[in-house]
Nucleic acid binder design. Structure first.
Length: 485
DNA sequence: TTTTGAGTTGTTCGA
DNA sequence: GTCGAACAACTCAAA
């Protein structure tokens, strides 16, 4: 048999629509490899929640590959060393992978690629995680976009993603079977089983991803525009963790959404899929920005924000993390996050606005907490989201836009079902006070078994005052800029 | 080069 | 209760 090809799995934990796997299979034997080297991702190695997801996703991939005939090889250690050793053991002459786009991983990949070539190995890389490579979409001047709408128009004016060749039905294993660690030995599962809620809420792996997409296309895409802001309903796709780990690819999603749109309206291009596809384009935009501005996970995109007068308060930060701010909609989100590893996007914005504007704490603190607790933690998306909310990123909201936690709750969770689920200690309050319990008369609180400051906190800041304080702080860096001129 | 139009997701105030 | 305007100033992207 000709020498096998190492297929290096990273964030493409799927069989379908996987160009690297297809390329490997077309050349003969395949050695599928997953290697665990978190230190190579610098400050942004996967957080606790993401590791838990990864564990289950790897088990799923392991099963799928075993069924196809070539079991997954799991190793630990530096990428280059592992790849070189595995090539030697199996007689592989080439290595293929699908590209990732985080700054640290890209640098690592480049170095590995060059080193492997020097060893006489063939290296080929593929595009699998995005609709477009981050550098493919550019303004008329060839520059990166910094405003979403023109970026989105450009995507719509580009050729639609195309279908890819079918996945291999069988894989030839190498003649020498390399040794492998067990997924369980990587120690990805959290030591404390806080992940019970995670298990109930999710099915990691390619099969789970496909089912989630089908559910969304069948039940929710039609009403996406109406329901996507309703955390009390299942109005969103909930595909984010599946997308992050590449259990499903965005091109496949795009094509399936278009198909569904055509089937329902009888004509392609009716546009029913567009509100959802637009969100998929935000994911693209985030990767576009991270590629062109690789320092933004740590630093504000807009320079003026380097001197923003952020507060420091360990106490307030902890209250926010634990969901004990006294604002039920914010607290519900923060508790949903801890319990399930996920938070509805509307609530993410409100919770992020509360941290950065009501509490005036640095957005980096919020980004780090989300990084550790979200199963879908994704450097590009997380960075864009936090910088956008804080007002220091691309296409930021005007600074006077400050979310009102009570009003947002009333609008997006009108019956309070979401709050009651995650903040049960105030569940017995009537709808009209569920988002602002401190406004309830004493006898209503007593009847509901709520003692403010005892069973549920009073608001840790007064929103009205906090809003004024935030506006003043934002105003101060505007003035500072004027003086500089 | 200059000009022009526009910008994910909000809130508040006053008519 | 509903509605429209104001909230500032900036920078981007394209003509």
């Amino acid at each position: 048999m000709s020498s096998p090809t190492i297929v290096w799995f990273r964030r493409d934990l799927r069989i379908e629509e996987n160009p690297a796997l297809r390329a490997g299979a077309s050349r003969g034997g395949v050695v599928p490899l997953f290697l665990w080297a978190p230190e190579e991702e610098g400050k942004w190695a996967p957080g606790a929640a993401a590791r838990g997801w990864l564990h289950h996703s790897l088990l799923s991939l392991e099963n799928a590959l075993a069924r196809l005939g070539s079991p997954l090889v799991v190793r630990r250690g530096g990428s280059l060393g592992v790849l070189k050793a595995l090539a030697k053991e199996t007689g592989a002459r080439s290595v293929v992978w699908n590209r990732v786009y985080e700054p640290a991983a890209r640098e690592r990949d480049l170095a590995v690629e060059q080193a492997l070539r020097r060893e006489g190995l063939l290296v080929e890389t593929f595009a699998a995680s995005l609709l477009f490579e981050p550098w493919e979409i550019a303004t008329g001047e060839g520059k990166p976009y910094q405003v979403f709408t023109p970026y989105w128009r450009k995507i719509l004016a580009s050729p639609e993603p195309d279908l890819c060749d079918p996945a291999p039905k069988r894989l030839a294993a190498p003649s020498r079977r390399p040794k492998s660690e067990r997924v369980a030995d990587l120690g990805l599962l959290p030591s404390v089983d806080w992940a019970g809620g995670l298990r109930d809420a999710w099915t990691p792996g390619e099969e789970g991803a496909r089912r989630a997409l089908e559910r969304f296309l069948r039940n929710a895409m039609r009403e996406y525009e109406r329901d996507r802001d309703r955390p009390d309903r299942i109005g969103t796709s909930r595909l984010s963790p599946h997308l992050h780990f590449g259990e499903i690819g965005p091109r496949g999603i795009w094509i399936e959404a278009r198909k569904r749109e055509a089937a329902e309206r009888g004509a392609r291009g009716s546009g029913a899929a567009l509100p959802y596809l637009r969100q998929l384009a935000w994911r693209e935009f985030a990767h576009h920005l991270l590629h062109h501005f690789p320092r933004t996970p740590e630093e504000p995109l807009r320079n003026a924000f380097a001197r923003f007068p952020w507060r420091r308060s360990r106490k307030d930060l902890l209250a926010w993390r634990r969901g004990l701010t006294g604002y039920p909609f914010v607290d519900a989100g923060m508790r949903e996050l801890r319990a399930t590893g996920w938070m509805h996007n509307r609530v993410r914005m409100v919770a992020a606005s509360f941290l950065t504007k009501d509490l005036l704490l640095p957005w980096q603190e919020g980004a780090r907490w989300f990084w550790d607790t979200l199963v879908d933690a994704d450097l590009a998306n997380n960075t864009l989201g936090w910088q956008w909310t804080a007002g220091c990123g691309a296409d930021a909201a005007p600074y006077f836009r400050v979310f009102h936690p009570g009003a947002q709750g009333a609008r997006c969770d009108p019956e309070g079902a979401y709050v009651r689920r995650w903040v049960p200690e105030i569940a017995a309050l009537p709808d009209c006070f569920i988002h602002e319990p401190w406004k309830a008369p004493e006898e209503v609180l007593r009847a509901a078994g709520v003692r403010l400051g005892k069973t549920y906190p009073r608001p840790i800041v007064d929103h009205r005052e906090a809003r004024e304080r935030a506006l003043a702080a934002y105003g101060s860096i505007q003035k500072a800029r004027e003086r500089k001129r």
